[in-house]
Design a protein around this nucleic acid. Structure first.
Lengths: 195, 195, 195, 195
DNA sequence: AATGAATGAGCCTTCATTCAT
DNA sequence: GATGAATGAAGGCTCATTCAT
């Protein structure tokens, strides 16, 4: 049964996200969530079927948010320019909401997704523009032959890792500006990477 | 007395690794480990101080193993050739012991490392040859200007993600052979990527 | 929601007291308490923070009960008569609720009080009338010079030990009536002990 | 089976006593004892049948030591003088080995003695001179009519409590010298208490 | 719809004891 | 005789979930 108060639902997800990022997925407990979200523990079951249902909802919600923002380019435009735009969007989102991207990554890389019953379709939902861009770039001979997964490996993951490294102090923005990352990705993917 | 059985220590680590890979780090419990390793639950405390001490040992052990194998190149040799060799080593290791690499990744990307008290030095231990190769390649004008972290983002992570995608059936080895990945990484990093 | 059942809190304390008296403080375990009190083990944590918090509550509760009853005399009345009354109150309480006095004694004599974080103030709470009586008796030249602690040693402890000895069959009430004990305490404390 | 090395046996008892006094009887564990005594945990079973056997041995050993020292008076001598001597011996022992007296008290006041199978006879062993003194004093009309237990309540327990109060800083030796305690006990017990 | 008391399974850890060495 | 690795029961405590209010 789904309740009314959408604010409360969002607070629950947000609380879970925070705990997960600060203490790890193993430390996520309903009592912590309830405390952090300012609700009673039983109330959780008004908004979600159980803990797994809530984790799945959290994952899909964040994934949808990320997807919505980083796909705000024209998938049928000039592949070179749109790849640049895509990377800029990813970088921008990572700078402001890195936690969502790390949360998605933690889910993606753990067997938990299977336990939550997330299907492959659900997992891909919202990423169609990136797939479209990939296909477009390859078919028009602008990209070297890459699949969606490979493009992500060279144009999405490195950006995340870059922002994480910045946050950890492993990399300095002066020494390694974002343009350097963009350049490397362009060099990898674009047949003619000259800017 | 009965001598301490080093086989048993290894069995504990192996059992933990398996559970972590199959069910996620949140599902790792001492009773599961004991059952999987064929020991009594209390025996764990003969080999490790507590659960965290064991997780840390597992992380450092696997990290050392990976580091040992993937650094079996000449860090002072020709950067182009050695980069190729490095990627081949990573690919080879990933094909045979992907679980170790994923385990390291799961640790790296979770707040658990801090809880385990892993220091930055411990974390970098064994990766010096890769740092050396990076420096060598950049200083000799063979690599575009990259730091260790950036090089890993374009020559290590994509290989792991490639093998994971192969295992998940998201990518087909015929459609995307490893040489394609190597090519993309070379294009990104090498100033003169022609083979 | 179900309201918090104050009966249950009392049952937990009572169960703990019983186990402590029958099997010793070392044998007090939450599972025994839960079984004895007829609750689930986890329920204990609704009423107390943890085991130590509960033991402290038990100690302070019993101490307050004893203090309340044995101080039901007039601390500013005639010291001789009030000392008699005090001892009669102690004797009466000991006959009906010896277990509470023994419990307090077991706590007092063990290092556990420090572990429970019982402060000196908490420990003395409720005994002020006895301190008042002591001061009154000494200042008016009715008592020999004694402090609170010394008076307790000669007018409280012997009564407890007497009732314990009665219960153990070490002393027979016909051979040694309570008046004998009262007489000895009066002789010790009163400058003019003749009744 | 009883082993040879009596030093080791004594070390085990001493270690147990220390832990019991510092942390309480509930905290006494064989591993702590072994560590404190500098032996292997299994070795304990060479000297004692099990934990209870060792606790019993500890109790009886300390009790015998105390009894031996505090009965070093002439039970058939002048009751007034011997009572003085008895109290002086108790005071002296308490000043130097209070831990043994507290240990005995902790055992006596807890149900543990029954669990250890200590018989009443074992419990009284060594106290015969005090019983003799009591009888002597009463029969000769020097003491008010007291039994052994009552005499202990007024001439032994108060001394222990006095030394404990000194150690805890509740009583100051200048304000309340030992002579005051002796005087109170004499007043209680002796028909003619004038010194 | 919301609460939070209640449950008992399961968590990590320590325990007393055994026994191969 | 002495060791300490091994055991698995039991310790205190937290968990996800239920349900009377």
């Amino acid at each position: 049964m789904r309740g009314r108060d959408e604010t409360k639902r969002a607070r629950i997800l947000q609380a879970t996200s925070q705990i997960m990022m600060n203490e790890g997925i193993a430390a996520v407990s309903l009592s912590k969530i309830a405390k952090e979200a300012g609700i009673a523990s039983g109330t959780l079951y008004t908004y979600f079927e159980d803990k797994n249902d809530m984790l799945k909802a959290l994952y899909l919600d964040r994934k949808a948010d990320v997807a919505r923002v980083i796909t705000a380019f024209d998938p049928n435009g000039d592949p070179t320019a749109e790849l640049d735009k895509f990377m800029a969007l990813v970088y921008d989102y990572a700078q402001h909401h890195l936690e969502n991207m790390l949360l998605i990554r933690e889910f993606n890389q753990s067997p938990i997704l299977k336990q939550l019953g997330v299907t492959a379709e659900e997992s891909y939902l919202g990423y169609e523009p990136i797939q479209q861009l990939t296909q477009n770039g390859v078919e028009n001979g602008v990209f070297v032959p890459v699949t969606f997964e490979v493009l992500m490996s060279y144009a999405y993951t490195p950006v995340i890792e870059y922002v994480v490294a910045l946050n950890n102090g492993l990399i300095n923005e002066q020494d390694v500006p974002f343009d350097r990352i963009k350049m490397l990705s362009r060099r990898a993917i674009l047949i003619n990477p000259q800017p």
